[in-house]
Design a protein around this nucleic acid. Sequence first.
DNA 1: GACTTACTTTAGACTTATTCTAAATAGAAG
DNA 2: CTTCTATTTAGAATAAGTCTAAAGTAAGTC
Lengths: 143, 143
Amino acid sequence: MHPMKRKESMTVDKIKQVLVASGAKPTAQRVAICKYVLCDGDHPTAEVVKVWADQNFPMVSRATVYNTLNLLVAKGLLKEVKLPHTNKVMYDCNIDHHYHFYNSATDALVDIDPKEVVMKSNVTEKYDISKIEITFHGKQRKK
Amino acid sequence: MHPMKRKESMTVDKIKQVLVASGAKPTAQRVAICKYVLCDGDHPTAEVVKVWADQNFPMVSRATVYNTLNLLVAKGLLKEVKLPHTNKVMYDCNIDHHYHFYNSATDALVDIDPKEVVMKSNVTEKYDISKIEITFHGKQRKK
DNA sequence: GACTTACTTTAGACTTATTCTAAATAGAAG
DNA sequence: CTTCTATTTAGAATAAGTCTAAAGTAAGTC
């Protein structure tokens, strides 16, 4: 079993392209936030994004952090992940269908490739299923 | 496919027994709340419990609703369910292991018997899995 | 270059769900 | 009865996120 691989970093120009392509103005704040959440961040919360922004950008307000994250989600460039162990939303740059493993020992979230999971159910006979979420909770197995 | 069956109603005496057995004083407020959440309620939120209590009991404060729900969860008589479509906690009197189907058309939550689902994954090879959550989202299929 | 216009950002107020606090109350035990 | 401990209460506090209204920015036009 191997976790899904992370996104590669993007140049500022590439990020601008992506924003423009999705119909959003590539403002300085948006580009900065994108650099983090679309490439470097590992399931950050809005709070984590704000801390990163405060350390790496002259000025980004909390409202802009939330506005930008919501914009990216609306444009399909980012996914919201809500898990029961916390009530903070986490943002996932992996927009392909996948599941999650939450490591309670380290508080880390790992993407699980759907290929690693076989799920069959007759629930689909009675219902129109639009989404299936699977989250594994546990700890890294000791070697 | 059939949803898991609901709990049967309990007499007040039976509820008192259950509370005492779990080491909690069977106060009037607790018994009243238990009557609802352990028998009649269908995945209510704290807010729904409060509304029910206001209509069926002389006086229960919001704090007592939360205290009692948290007590029942701590005693293992009730399960918390947190789902991504809302940030309100839902309470489930079905404490056996099970999954959920969330019907977005009706906002109803249905328990799914694990027997209805076959899940295999090599995620368990690398991790010690303590809990697997599966939530189906969708609508009731039209006949 | 200044002007308009539409979009973006900002600080801070607001909302919502839940928890906390400190005082009042209820019951059991003596 | 009085005392003691657990419980309940009203309302304040907290935490995450949203809203508001004013100020800033930038592109297109003259």
